[in-house]
Design a protein around this nucleic acid. Structure first.
Lengths: 139, 139
DNA sequence: CACCTCACACTACTTATTGTAGTTACCTGT
DNA sequence: ACAGGTAACTACAATAAGTAGTGTGAGGTG
């Protein structure tokens, strides 16, 4: 259940997964518990070329091996669902990445932080300010 | 000259490069301009098993192809040096990563920021505070 | 001038990751 | 007992990274 790479030039889940893996995780996170063919059907909705059942199965089982999905067998049908919720996943990843980044680059990150926040969403700077204030009050 | 991956569970340059690539970059960054055999010699200092000359050459030339090293031919001997300084490299990477992280996770990162700073180096929080103050004064 | 050596180029094999898909085996309901 | 669907097993392609063999060319030395 460990992500190893954060890909710079991708977006969203593609930063953590391969493109097909990412689509599958998204589908599973948007549903409760699905069989392979359900996932395949959903994938085929925005794909022009239908995906081979076995392709979907292989990738899903690999995701199970890696600990991102859990599999439950009901009769002969496997039912898959994510190990953790999307929110938890993103929470964990952002936390881990933030820590790694600070650990690795401490001062450099602080230097770039405000620029980045300004560019993306200035309100986040206010949010950060609040958090610092709150932290100081606690001590 | 683009790094594609940031590896979570490595340290230092190994986050950006393969292990041998990282050692080579380090050696080149600690020297001015080196030939392959010089790099090989330095690598063999902390390696128990000496590295094949061709191995070192292949990896160095790949680093040239990727744009991390430049190569200059003096007579028949190729001389290699990093495209940018170690500081610039780390500066660029930390900047890019910080931006990507904020772009992807904005509020989540802000949430984890202070924790991370506290754990690694509390002085960095003061530094961040200063930067926010300076920013507000500018506007 | 012939040759030997060294540095380089070219090529290839290995492992791991991800996407892809064929073949085979098995189970279940009819 | 069989058909159809589900799953397991196996394999192949591409990419990245580490490793290394073979071939080539240029220069100094006898």
């Amino acid at each position: 259940m460990k992500i190893h790479n954060f890909k710079y030039h991708e977006r969203g889940l593609n930063r953590f997964f391969g493109p097909l893996e990412a689509k599958i995780m998204n589908i599973l996170w948007d549903s409760s518990e699905l069989a392979i063919k359900d996932v395949q059907a959903k994938l085929d909705q925005d794909q022009t070329k239908p995906l081979n059942f076995n392709t979907v199965m292989t990738v899903m089982n690999r995701l199970v091996d890696k600990g991102f999905l859990t599999k439950r067998t009901e009769g002969r049908t496997g039912l898959y669902q994510p190990m953790v919720s999307r929110d938890d996943f993103l929470e964990n990843q952002s936390k881990e990445l933030t820590h790694e980044l600070i650990e690795e680059f401490g001062p450099l990150v602080v230097n770039h932080m405000l620029d980045a926040l300004e560019e993306v969403d200035v309100d986040l700077i206010a949010m950060l300010e609040q958090k610092i204030k709150a932290l100081k009050k606690d001590n």
